[in-house]
Design a protein around this nucleic acid. Sequence first.
DNA 1: CTTGACCTTCCAGCTACTGGAGCCCTTAGA
DNA 2: TCTAAGGGCTCCAGTAGCTGGAAGGTCAAG
Lengths: 132, 132
Amino acid sequence: MNIGIASEKTGLPSKTIRYYEDIGLVRPARTDNGYRDYSASDIHRLKFLQRSRSLGFSVDECRQLLSLYQDRARDSADVKAIAEARLVEIDRKIAELNGLRHLLHHLVEHCHGNDRPDCPIIDELAGEGLVQ
Amino acid sequence: MNIGIASEKTGLPSKTIRYYEDIGLVRPARTDNGYRDYSASDIHRLKFLQRSRSLGFSVDECRQLLSLYQDRARDSADVKAIAEARLVEIDRKIAELNGLRHLLHHLVEHCHGNDRPDCPIIDELAGEGLVQ
DNA sequence: CTTGACCTTCCAGCTACTGGAGCCCTTAGA
DNA sequence: TCTAAGGGCTCCAGTAGCTGGAAGGTCAAG
């Protein structure tokens, strides 16, 4: 199966699929003319990667998850640990963004947004602001 | 004022300050020995950048904000527009992360996390999962 | 005179791709 | 049989925003 079809089946751009090969996440066969030839199990692997990435796992975490996936004797605890670490990270990020959102919203609300120069947002950035 | 002191005063690493000079955000004088020499107004600019960056503005937005800051005849509306765009982006990101968090939390909750291989997280990633 | 803490420049690397150039292969139509 | 379109291939460079490190210059203290 050519890379274009693999791309359609997995929802990953061809460029990305080649990249995943570069970094050793997938190893398709090659046909005589040098084209990559994806098997059903390659497609499965790529879909696994697509889903993992879209759940926010880093490429390196995906690598670990893939190897746990292949490992019939894995401990589910190992998978859970990776997912929980991700969850903690996501929570941290959400909290950070909520903090920013709060500050920024506060500033935006106090800015008239007209044709005059006085602006609490700029004042804040300049260190003469609303927020202590 | 040497870069080390500027770093202390602004909370930005020296490397970052040099980088900001590279991309034209700040232009310190030089002393005879070739050392960068930061004036009070350079420090002010750097602090402005530090605050803007920590509020989540991109370097390019910081550039725009800085030039609005210098512009005594600015319209506060222009500043507000940049901040509002940032706010929209932050909200989008928060929503995305909340979605991920929800999914991942759901999966983690259903994983026993023991020494057995069966794991709904892996199943989900493999496309045989809980989530439709 | 030496030591150590600074400073300088330049180059490479990080994440996870993405775009583009320049080329080859295959297939359908004129 | 020629040609054009639409794949595919490799390799190189660029994205954001730094960060680390090498190799060297400068300065103040002891």
